[in-house]
Amino acid sequence: MSFRLSHLPIAAKIAAALAFLLLVSLTVMAVSWRNLRTIEETGRWDVHSREVLETLDRVVAAMLNRETGLRGYLLSGEASFLEPYRAGEADFAAALKRARSLTVDNPAQLARLDALARLEQAWTSEVAARAIRLMGEPATQAEARRLETSGAGKAAMDGLRANAAEIAASERDLLARRSGESAAAVALSRITSIAGFGVMVAAAAGSLLLLHLGIAKPIRGMTGTMGRLARQDLVAEVPGIGRHDEIGAMAEAVQVFKDGLIRARALEEE
């Protein structure tokens, strides 16, 4: 048996129209909520990546301070020039620890930080600590300066800078990717809002048309027929016969009324 809209009760027609509008609204809201979550999540991770980059800058700056302090000590022989070296040592340890805590969920970055730490330890033990020790004795100060000019320290620092640049490049790649995801989410949210508004307008128009054709128009037709019957126009056709909703029940009642009028007129004529 084929389904006909006229078989639905009036309450069901109204409920169906409202349910469709609600479904469209919920769909638009769900998509917008998901896009908002994406934007918020990418924003949070952007802040995280920028903090990693700032911490990495502190790591590199600490090593530069240590290198500068060591070079100043080797050139002057004054122990006061080692103050930046000592301060940089503490700053490097704190910044490296912070960088590791920020990238604990990124094994690749942790591996790069471990490599950076090994380079720092190699520079400290093989170049810095050795040079400071040699500078402590007048007889070996020339050897300490030759160690600095040999390029051993520069090689270690160049490796450390290259490692830090690789870590920074990885974080910038993440920033770029998340920026693209955020932009896509914003664009999708805009499209969803516009499309959702259009669908809701169309749904509202369709619901009004449904209510007009399924309820208002049949009731007006029924009212017109009852007026004609009241004026003794017994040839008026009763609309809505055969419907299974309230309009059909009204039509059957009016048809009974019409049949009664026809029988009464026949009796009067007899």
Rank of each mutant, 00 (worst) to 15 (best):
E171F: 01
A152E: 06
R146Y: 09
K217M: 11
I219V: 14
A165E: 05
G159Y: 00
G180Y: 04
S207D: 02
V199K: 06
A156D: 05
G151L: 07
A122T: 10
F197M: 15
P218M: 04
R145F: 12
K217S: 12
A162H: 05
E137L: 13
I219K: 02
A202H: 06
A156R: 04
G159M: 01
R190W: 11
R145Y: 13
L210V: 12
G136L: 03
L210A: 12
M226P: 02
A168Y: 00
A184S: 12
A131F: 06
G153E: 01
G196S: 13
I191N: 15
A144V: 05
G180Q: 06
G198A: 08
E181P: 01
R177P: 00
E166W: 01
S150H: 06
I215G: 00
Q121A: 14
A155L: 09
R145I: 13
L174C: 03
S189C: 10
R130A: 08
I132N: 02
G151F: 08
E148D: 15
N163Y: 03
F197W: 14
G180F: 03
A204E: 03
L213P: 02
A162M: 03
A152P: 05
I194D: 09
G151E: 07
Q121I: 14
L229Q: 03
R130K: 14
K217Y: 10
M226N: 13
V199A: 13
L188W: 08
A169Q: 05
I194W: 07
V127A: 09
I132Y: 03
A176I: 06
D173M: 04
G196Y: 09
A139D: 09
I219H: 03
A187M: 12
D173A: 07
A203S: 14
M157I: 11
L134D: 03
S125V: 13
A183W: 10
A144Y: 01
L208C: 10
L209V: 13
W123L: 10
L188T: 13
A230E: 10
A185C: 08
T225F: 02
A129Q: 15
V201K: 05
P218V: 01
G206S: 06
R172Y: 04
L160T: 00
T149S: 14
S193Y: 12
E171W: 00
I132R: 08
E148C: 15
A176Y: 05
L209W: 11
T124C: 15
A203V: 09
V186A: 15
S182Y: 07
R133Q: 14
A187I: 11
S207R: 03
M200S: 14
H212G: 10
M157L: 14
M135E: 01
V199C: 11
S179W: 11
S125F: 08
A139W: 09
A165F: 04
G159L: 01
G136F: 03
I167H: 00
T124G: 15
E137K: 11
G224F: 07
T124S: 15
G206A: 07
A216Q: 10
L213M: 12
R146E: 14
P218F: 01
A122K: 08
R161V: 04
R220V: 09
S193A: 15
M135R: 01
A204G: 11
A139L: 13
S125L: 13
D173L: 04
L213C: 08
E181L: 07
R146T: 11
A156I: 06
R172V: 05
G214K: 00
S179M: 13
L213Q: 11
A128N: 07
M222F: 08
L188C: 11
A152Q: 10
P218I: 01
A156W: 02
M135Q: 02
